[in-house]
Amino acid sequence: MHWQGIKIEGLRKRYGEGDTAVDALKGVDMRVAPGEVVGLVGPSGSGKTTLLKCLGAVIEPTAGRMSLGEDVIYDQGWKISDLRELRRDKIGFVFQAPYLIPFLDVTDNVALLPMLAGVPNEEARKRAVELLEALDVAHRAKAMPSQLSGGEQQRVSIARALVNRPPVILADEPTAPLDSERALAVIRILNDMAHRFETAVIVVTHDEKIIPTFKRIYHIRDGVTYEEAGEGRGFEPALDKFAVK
């Protein structure tokens, strides 16, 4: 039986060649199940961002194997011809800063991805509004990004990451600019969405406030990952209002 989440085996990444070569990843192994949120924790320079970029198909690993759901995307070379399409349809990104498109309103920021995938505008906007309602920001649907608070912007960026129903979400320090309350709210939302949409979520973080919420944590140091069980406090899954329709 195929593993349905994210599976990484022996992933390596080397920058440069010869004497100046640097091994950023030295054989990373990870598994994240659908609906699971795991933390990826490590000091600066440990390889977190390199791992995220490899997973996000924006840089090519040097060796190893990666699969998303049933699809092997990398096995000693990319197995997918169109990485742009892979990123659009299979991977959701949540960044440290929300990086919303400043000239699109909230609805179109979220609807842009399905539109890029060829979904008709009205259908894409309907999907976007449903997600915004689930994330409690539907009342700001017509607002421009500059009119939103930091927390609202981050929720909109989560909606954008989820709108194409990707099997994987990669979140890069999503709570860094937020206070404790808002940071925990964001993690709660990611947990609920992961549960609702059966999405595997990897959260790269330094944030001490949220680390205790993960049930599983991958530590990365010098390009190697070590798995450990988290405190596993987590969150109660699926609030009523997020219940799958």
Binding site: G56, R84, R88, F93, F95, Y99, I101, L113
Partner: peptide, 16 residues
Amino acid sequence: IREIAVLKLIGTKNRT
């Protein structure tokens, strides 16, 4: 530039 990087990351075609 940052918005363009995000657009490219989320799968926007170069021609778009």
